[in-house]
Design a protein around this nucleic acid. Sequence first.
DNA 1: TGTGACGAATAAGTCTGACTTTTTATGGCT
DNA 2: AGCCATAAAAAGTCAGACTTATTCGTCACA
Lengths: 233, 233
Amino acid sequence: MSTPGRGLHGHVLDTLGPAITAGEYPPGSVLRTDELAQRFDVSRSVMREAVRVLESMHLVESRRRVGVTVQPKTAWNVYDPQVIRWRLEGADRPHQLRSLTVLRSAIEPVAAGLAAKHATAEQCAELTECALGMVANSRGHQLEGYLIHDMAFHRVILTASGNEMFARLGDVVAEVLAGRTHHEVMFEDPDPAAVTLHVQVAEAVREGDAARAEELTREITVGALQELDILAP
Amino acid sequence: MSTPGRGLHGHVLDTLGPAITAGEYPPGSVLRTDELAQRFDVSRSVMREAVRVLESMHLVESRRRVGVTVQPKTAWNVYDPQVIRWRLEGADRPHQLRSLTVLRSAIEPVAAGLAAKHATAEQCAELTECALGMVANSRGHQLEGYLIHDMAFHRVILTASGNEMFARLGDVVAEVLAGRTHHEVMFEDPDPAAVTLHVQVAEAVREGDAARAEELTREITVGALQELDILAP
DNA sequence: TGTGACGAATAAGTCTGACTTTTTATGGCT
DNA sequence: AGCCATAAAAAGTCAGACTTATTCGTCACA
């Protein structure tokens, strides 16, 4: 999924990025470019390029005569897909998963409402196809097949919304869904009610019923929140 | 607001970034590092660092024997605050503003609902203070004073939600609000109804009434959508 | 005793030039 | 026409020397 091995600096990032986002270096920690270059056995130029990238994510800040200081979490570019991936891989995973699920619960219903207005015929067809695929894989422990169609379904919704900001969350949502199936233990077949909801969302979008698409999607995301015990009693 | 002059590579970014996000180089255009270094009168090392940053934003991709190719808009990290700023400065401004306003309409109501549950006493006080500041500056063309309190209000809401992803949108929302006052012509005093809504949101949060806070905030964002003529007739 | 200025130490920043590696294009061959 | 060897092009990497900004310690002076 990621793009490993795009040069030496990429390898450095794949090590340093996860380490920082996992909190291995507490905020305020000071690293030195030369020392890091030695540690990773790369030249300073390569190390500097890696530091620049981390700096653009606001994971670190580089200051003369001081060094490379690790930034507090509040400064991080938490929407950077690379940062999200690193955090999902590491110790911060549960917390990150909750944040993203709350984000989904805000975005996806609105996106579905917009999709009902803007989706092309092709996108509607794709959506229906995904929903049918989910139904077909909803019983008998075919979790992998179910997941593929689930991810595609949500990606189409987000894309069809016509909003570039929503569309860009397709990868993130896919990763959250994948995580639920792969990491979080999912013994049983998916909730039949959820499957039905997806089919109904596809219907609503096809019929251009924005309000219904939004409300149904809200129910889906509420389910996702409940799975993580995020809800008011 | 931005951080200019963090070295030569920063200057290069301040020129190349806006140029690319403004669409001056069509997707697929190929640049060469050496040529760029000459054009900006910097060394190749500096140029390479700049390219690495642009690459981490997925604005360009660097490939051996080919060069630095400009990526299509769909690949960009549209949530990167730097990218957002560049686009707001350039020709893409109207489009970017609409995207962000739609995003706000999805996020802020949910954030307000969460804020009603999680806001500390201090945050509630701050919120009320902001709302009062808005009222005090709502008449007599005190647009600047109004803006400051408006920005602070929304930032507190997003922070008080307790969700880091929401909190990180504080800067973006502030920039959208500032843009409305500074760039888009805002002749008249703000809509009195909007001012009242803000006061009521502060009330609802203080009382812990999540549903009401969410609904009232939704009304605020609907108003913002209407200002940009984004709505179904 | 406190304060300010000067200077030394330090780590990032910059530049240059040589070399390596990968990928594409070319051109000759079957 | 298809294929393989070769050359060329551009990014990638490295090493070393030099520059510059910032911080910290010291010492003189008030």
